[in-house]
Nucleic acid binder design. Structure first.
Lengths: 295, 295
DNA sequence: AGAGGTTACGGGCAGCGTAAGGATC
DNA sequence: GATCCTTACGCTGCCCGTAACCTCT
């Protein structure tokens, strides 16, 4: 009676102001949340939430309970961190990842994660950083590896790695002079990440004030497609070389010695500040390790 | 996972040093305790208790966990005390009561208890104070109304009421002079509580140094029997008049105007100091109220 | 052999998900 | 009527109690 599950549910409903959103957050159905709150109120004999209005609000006893509930959950998290064997971490972590990470150190990261915390389930979402940011703020993912940091007071950021961007082209594409001047680069379509991504904007701005006119930009939400197009000699990819290391080594692609540079892609692990961020923190720390090893 | 039930079980096993005793204390079976502890250890991935020896002991992580577990349980109890509607108190209270209380204000107390906390179940044990004391220290009852206070550092005492003792006899027994001198009182058997009770000892000591020789003492573990014997004129009862108020009012018994006095019977509510004493405290407070009304 | 903890197994019940039912804008 | 919470109901899985087993004194 009055267990941690009820309290956690209550805290989330109070925080999110919605049963539905809480159900989604806790990976269950909305009636289950109704039931938990109803039982909590029945056991305490007190109405905790006012649901008469459009969005759910706290009653006076509800506000009072919040203080205790958060302290209890915090204390339990601390306890688990202090006592539990590392390998005992369990549950489900919803992780959002930018595609660049997928093509670099994510496989090694997942391997290590599984070896270290075998009972921790991973739900992976791959999307562009902008969408991941929204998903994170909406509590729909617990942790994200994205182009950061996120400047939000409720978010903690941990630097992971920084990939230099480069112009990468098929050997089929020949350049007259080295280093390749902007005027020559711009003859080819520049292929990079989807619109609204940091690299896309960076590339666009790089040539924005050029007297040579706007470059032709090919944007793809799929990194594999970017690489494919570069391999086919359709244009010059503007991506971190780390992604296509093998293709470069095999001579299918080469790094263009360009006269200009594109800003680096800096990745962070980012998660919301909450009573229970232990798992996110540890996973983020591991990601930072892996990323460091990779560099 | 790692809920309050597991933690409470763990704390009790650690405190009592026995699975069996814990099972008894928590009103369940010993395998259930085994299972809870096993699951807790499985979830934390740590061995908490060493059961190799004759009695169960804490491991290093177990000692560490105790600190957190006790804080968590304490905090939860405080929370319930602060938030829960009074009528929401529930569970089972094992109450030990001295017989005198049963025959005075206990019926009114139970009535009020049931009206105030209808979801609180009561397990009643009637015995002499000495046995109640042992039961309390052995954690076999949660609260006791007995002749107190108990001088044990682990026990809290709350004064309830003080009954004057008196010599009470059937009208069949006539006395030559008033107030009745010791020499005349002692002609009759003195009937009082069981051996090892405070009144029995008091009565015995009262006449111990008398030159008139030791009195004939009838001791009964059953108050009803004491009263019966007094009604039948077998001897003079030495009990609080409050017990036989009706018989005195109806003229079946009368209070003897004796030349000597027997010490009062002071009752206290007594309970062990624990993380979760909220229920005991509140019930004791109610008992004190009832007892005060009675006086 | 007896006390105390563990393991095995069957049953009961809490809690979940699906689906239908209000209430409020 | 759309959105959100509540209620109804069948089901699954957890946890308990019984009973047999193991270990140590």
């Amino acid at each position: 009676m009055v267990d941690f599950k009820s309290l956690e549910t209550f805290v989330w409903v109070a925080t999110l102001g919605s049963f539905r959103a809480t159900a989604h957050k806790l990976n269950t159905t909305q009636p289950a949340i109704s039931q938990r709150i109803a039982q909590l109120e029945r056991e305490l004999g007190v109405r905790l939430l006012s649901r008469d209005k459009r969005n759910v609000g706290l009653t006076a006893p509800g506000r009072e309970l919040m203080v205790y509930a958060e302290r209890l959950l915090q204390l339990r998290a601390t306890m688990l961190g202090a006592i539990a064997e590392p390998s005992a971490m369990q549950g489900t972590l919803r992780l959002g990842v930018a595609e660049t990470v997928v093509h670099t150190w994510l496989p090694r990261f997942i391997e290590r994660l599984d070896a270290t915390w075998p009972r921790l389930a991973l739900e992976l979402e791959v999307d562009i950083s902008l969408n991941l940011r929204e998903r994170l703020l909406a509590q729909e993912i617990d942790l994200a590896f994205l182009v950061g940091p996120l400047s939000d007071v409720t978010v903690r950021n941990l630097p992971l790695c920084s990939f230099p961007n480069a112009f990468i082209a098929s050997p089929k594409i020949a350049f007259a002079s080295v280093p390749v001047p902007v005027s020559e680069l711009i003859r080819w379509p520049l292929i990079t990440f989807a619109k609204n991504t940091q690299p896309y904007v960076a590339v666009r701005d790089l040539f924005a004030h050029s007297e040579l006119g706007p470059p032709r930009l090919h944007a793809s939400a799929s990194l594999a497609t970017v690489v494919r197009m570069a391999l086919d000699g359709i244009g010059i990819a503007v991506i971190p070389p780390a992604i296509v290391r093998e293709d470069v080594a095999a001579g299918r692609l080469r790094i263009v010695d360009a006269a200009i540079a594109v800003p680096d892609l800096a990745f962070t692990a980012s998660w919301l500040i909450h009573p229970d961020t232990l798992v996110a923190e540890r996973v983020a720390a591991m990601a930072a390790e892996i990323a460091a090893e990779d560099a």
